[in-house]
Amino acid sequence: MIFSLILNTAAQDTFGAELDKNEEYQQRMSLYKKVETVTNIPWYVLAAVDQYERNVRHSRKDIPKADGLIEIYVKPEVWAGPLNPNLNDNNPLSIGLFGGIGVDGNGDGLANQKDDEDILFTFANYLMSYGADVDNIKIGLWDFYQRDKTVGIIMGHMKLYKNYDRLNLDDHAFPVPLRSNFSYKNTWGDARGWGGRRIHEGTDIFASYGVPVRSTCYGVIEMKGWNRFGGWRVGIRDLDNMYHYFAHLNGFADGLQAGQIVEPGQIIGSVGSSGYGPPGTAGKFPPHLHYGLYKDNGRTEWSFDSYPHLKSWERADRQKNRKK
């Protein structure tokens, strides 16, 4: 009886969390569409920037937490103007005089750095000064962030949102079919010697040659080809600014290309033993998939333990199979 109550409570909590997330998505989409109507900057551009910034804010401590739904961060000196003596200025007139970009987005006469509509309209207005086409948006993004990788990640987010026309792209999948014979344990951080002393930045999933390898997420292929450590490998960037790294492949799925959109469960290649040498080297170790996760925080990218995510996605896939 107690166990049943615990399960029911947990199920209700999960359902409540899903409702909260869906409601947040609806509110954010409403804001994006509202600003799109006024500025002609496509909603998926604003959503991509906001999503990129959301992940950056949540992974760094030097940026204040957002006060509302929109998490685009504009530095106070950029918002109010570099020579403005009041970096908390919310008067659109004085902000303009000092060369700030902050504007009033909701018609209340204030350019509030903590108001969702003002933040979103300010960034859209900034991009609009460059132009609403893709090439000019890229120039505006580069001028704002001064970082090629950031622009590339945001462009990938844009591609996903435009393609699916929705925000809820959170699903994941285990990288090999559950019906296949596979095994894995937590090997992140283990010592590696080939090519110099280094740590193992991933989890090895051992399986037979040719077992399908699947995308773990909605994402865009950033890299495809040969790496002397990883052999034939694929790198996918998701909407959490995370890079999913699949290495030691036997080959790629037909037609797979850099820049392509992929979905959870989509086959991208097969298990092999390639790597540790020039292109074509294989067989130096048992066949397995090396799967790694890397996070970008707007300044650098680092690897972290992928094992807990794999266990979670494996459990979720098993639950889905039981429901079929």
Rank of each mutant, 00 (worst) to 15 (best):
M1Y: 09
L7V: 14
N8K: 03
N8W: 02
A11C: 02
E18V: 04
N22C: 00
Q26D: 15
Y32C: 08
K33C: 00
K33E: 03
V38S: 09
I41H: 12
P42D: 01
P42V: 09
V45M: 13
L46S: 02
V49F: 11
V49N: 01
D50A: 05
Q51H: 15
H58Q: 11
D62E: 04
D62T: 12
I63N: 10
P64S: 01
D67F: 14
G68M: 06
L69E: 06
V78G: 04
P82S: 09
L87I: 09
N88V: 06
D89S: 14
N90V: 10
P92D: 12
L93I: 15
I95D: 06
G96I: 12
G96Y: 12
I101Q: 13
D108V: 11
G109S: 08
Q113F: 12
K114P: 00
D115E: 14
D115P: 00
T122I: 08
F123H: 06
Y130A: 01
A132M: 10
D135I: 07
N136P: 00
N136L: 14
K138G: 07
F144L: 04
Q146V: 11
Q146Y: 10
K149R: 14
G152C: 02
M155C: 05
K159Q: 15
K159V: 01
Y161V: 04
L169Q: 03
D170F: 00
H172T: 10
S183D: 08
K185F: 03
G189A: 01
W194K: 01
G196L: 06
R198K: 15
T203Q: 02
D204I: 02
I205K: 13
S208F: 06
V211L: 02
P212N: 13
S215H: 13
T216L: 00
M223K: 10
G225H: 06
F229E: 11
G235Y: 08
G235M: 11
R237Q: 07
D240G: 07
Y243L: 14
L249E: 07
L249K: 03
N250D: 13
D254V: 01
L256P: 03
G259H: 06
E263R: 07
E263V: 05
P264L: 09
I268K: 03
S274Q: 12
G277Y: 13
G277F: 15
A282S: 15
H288F: 14
G292T: 08
L293R: 10
L293W: 14
K295S: 12
K295N: 00
N297P: 13
N297K: 08
G298N: 13
R299T: 15
E301H: 00
W302N: 02
F304G: 02
P308A: 02
L310N: 10
S312E: 09
N321K: 15
